[in-house]
């Protein structure tokens, strides 16, 4: 609960803040809180990978792109669609909340075994039981990289 509140606030900040850099920073903060959530479930490996990959590499790349494009602050205009959108948003929120909240009231913090997320166990699982899906996913990522390089290179003759 202590982690979920800041996480939700940060997510609101991503959508609500006017400057793109601040949105990105809120997202970084959100990733951090998410990593702490993983830590609290003794999933150290996934938590630290979350920080390293998302907060450390991908968001820095996002910042790089944002600064390269340097977008102007969005100036808000009065929009007649705004109240209607808010109404629908609230309705959706209540609908979802009425389904989720009763479940949450009775839920307990799942008690994980110590060391269930240690690098040793994760690595063993990845390279024995799930070695085929793991390799397929890595091949998929490689295809993505090659494809993006191909697309980027094609423009310049």
């Amino acid at each position: 609960m202590m982690l979920a509140g800041p996480a939700a606030l940060a997510t609101v900040g991503v959508v609500a803040s006017k400057s793109a850099v601040r949105s990105a920073l809120c997202l970084v903060f959100n990733f951090f809180i998410l990593a702490f959530l993983y830590f609290s479930l003794s999933m150290e490996m996934i938590g630290i990978t979350q920080i390293m990959v998302y907060a450390g590499a991908i968001m820095v790349l996002f910042m790089f792109v944002i600064m390269l494009l340097n977008p102007k602050l969005i100036d808000e205009k009065k929009d007649y669609k705004l109240p209607i959108g808010l109404l629908f948003g609230l309705a959706l929120f209540m609908l979802l909340g009425s389904q989720i909240l009763p479940k949450l009231m009775t839920a307990n913090v799942p008690a994980m075994e110590y060391e269930v997320g240690s690098p040793k166990l994760v690595g063993e699982a990845l390279f024995t039981t799930y070695v085929f899906p793991f390799e397929v996913v890595s091949l998929l990522l490689l295809v993505g990289v090659v494809g993006s390089v191909f697309l980027a290179k094609r423009r310049t003759p």
Partner: peptide, 11 residues
Amino acid sequence: DVNIGMLYILA
């Protein structure tokens, strides 16, 4: 003394 010490440094 976490068991992800090296990853922690990288992160």
